[in-house]
Design a binder for these strands. Structure first.
Lengths: 142, 142
DNA sequence: CAGTATCCGTGCTGATACTG
DNA sequence: CAGTATCAGCACGGATACTG
């Protein structure tokens, strides 16, 4: 059983790593909040219960498809609760669940870090993008 | 100038929102750490300076292309520093910058939250995926 | 109002092959 | 060793049209 080439070993390691990645809680969490609209929707719902159209209005860039998809996803993950009132035009309300409220502080942390450091990141990007042809520039601007 | 249809108003709001989104620090940050390998690479480098092949070995699932791309991206964002030693086979080392080290606690927060709540999320997903056909089930399981 | 259905472009991601 | 280059798949996201 120890008869295994290095290539086979690598294969196995990779497969194991892939399996690990699929189960990696962090990676799963990033899949949840890493997409374009989740954080925005969560942030809006953190302000209070909202109806579908209210969320839509708060996020002028979102299409109906993406909003529904995001909301469904968050509902499936147990972060958002959906309740339907069967009135004449049906009324659907979205609220943060307990779990959903528990993620808000984390979102706030992320937003705060972003706010505090994004300037530095953008400065770095400009340096990286803008100075490839002028190699002599000293780093005193940093 | 106030002559504007509701549709035009919406158009403008949407354009403004899109512009806002592009500059939104949080959204930018998610673009940085939200992709597949950034957090893993950052985490590995948080353990210490690593050479290209060392990072590659630590992350058996990553292809050379993606590793280079991720590393370049992080370098551009000023989170990682790349230093080349022109020895016979060139030696390239990657280290976290000061800014890179400042993001580590945030990454840790994310990982901790994920670790503490992923079970609940997965339970919710199983409930959501597994009970569509049995509608009569009361909610006492929640 | 609150969605669903469909089509489609872009970009992220990866496999493979090649290089100084 | 540390990449680069090219090709290809597919999921993400969006525009548009339609529905109970």
């Amino acid at each position: 059983m120890a008869t295994m080439t290095a290539a086979e070993r690598r294969e196995q390691e990779k497969a194991a790593f892939d399996a690990y990645m699929d189960e990696c809680p962090t990676h799963q969490l990033m899949g949840i909040i890493g997409n374009k609209w989740s954080m925005l929707v969560l942030t809006e719902l953190a302000r209070g219960t909202r109806r579908y159209a209210e969320v839509s209005r708060a996020l002028p860039g979102v299409s109906a498809k993406m909003l529904t998809q995001t909301l469904r996803s968050l509902e499936r993950d147990g972060l958002v609760a959906r309740s339907v009132t069967p009135s004449v035009p049906v009324q659907v309300e979205y609220t943060l669940t307990l779990l959903g409220e528990r993620i808000v502080p984390l979102l706030t942390s992320i937003k705060e870090w972003a706010g505090r450091h994004i300037d530095e990141i953008n400065a770095s990007r400009e340096r990286y993008d803008g100075t490839p042809e002028r190699g002599g520039e000293p780093d005193h601007t940093v």
